[in-house]
């Protein structure tokens, strides 16, 4: 997890389930094959009904036709993000698409744990209803250390909930562990002291 994550925001509503994040038909590609795994990026959020894709206006595809990655870096969502299946492909797909952080009002348990297990994305929580504040395409900057989201387009700032002990695991990825080694080392040496477990 970077100290500063900066880019365009993509806004979604409540209860974005794992079938919307990566539809089941696409769960067939290898996760560790450099070429094949690009498909997870290509089809990320392809299950979101188009009128609810990219709020508030909707009808904004997360991945442009023919592209393999998204123009967006941070997802803003409502409550219960990632509900549904246990597919680890879901946070993985968002990472492959180019998403670095999700800021939601709450998460489903397995998605949250999967996000951290693989350090795929940083799952921040917010008590505020940012879905009504931030517009898809707004330039935003997330200070992951301070837990502050700045909307550069609208010149507004929001304090997010603390990541808690999860921060140590997510930070670990850039403090010595390679991304590949990271989740298991985290598990063995750190996780028993932490409270993120599902």
């Amino acid at each position: 997890m970077k100290s500063i994550i900066k880019g365009k925001a993509f806004v979604l509503g409540n209860d974005i389930d794992t079938d919307q994040i990566i539809p089941a038909a696409h769960l067939v590609y290898k996760l560790d094959d450099l070429d094949e795994k690009k498909n997870y990026g290509r089809y990320a959020f392809s299950g979101v009904p188009i009128e609810q894709s990219g709020l508030p206006q909707g009808n904004i595809p997360f991945i442009k036709e023919g592209n393999w990655q998204s123009d967006y870096t941070i997802v803003i969502a409502g409550k219960n993000f990632g509900c549904g299946s246990s597919r680890e492909h879901a946070p993985f797909a968002l990472q492959v698409a180019g998403i670095e952080a999700v800021i939601a009002e709450s998460y489903a348990r397995i998605f949250y744990r999967n996000s951290i297990d693989g350090a795929f994305i940083a799952p921040f929580e917010t008590p505020q209803h940012l879905v009504k504040e931030i517009r898809t395409g707004d330039e935003v900057e997330l200070d992951t250390t301070a837990g502050v989201l700045e909307n550069l387009t609208q010149k507004k700032e929001y304090k997010l909930s603390s990541l808690g002990d999860v921060e140590h695991i997510l930070r670990g990825g850039v403090e010595g562990w390679s991304e590949q080694e990271f989740s298991f080392d985290a598990f063995v040496s750190i996780s028993s002291r932490l409270t993120y477990s599902g």
Binding site: G84, S86, N114, G118, F187
Partner: peptide, 27 residues
């Protein structure tokens, strides 16, 4: 534990059963 969210079905038998992701399962 099972790599499927509906692993919770087996709780019907008076056991603790829940779904997990690939990384947890590999561990």
């Amino acid at each position: 534990f099972g790599t499927d969210s509906h692993t919770c079905t087996a709780g019907a038998f008076g056991e603790f059963a829940t779904g997990i992701g690939n990384t947890d399962a590999a561990f």
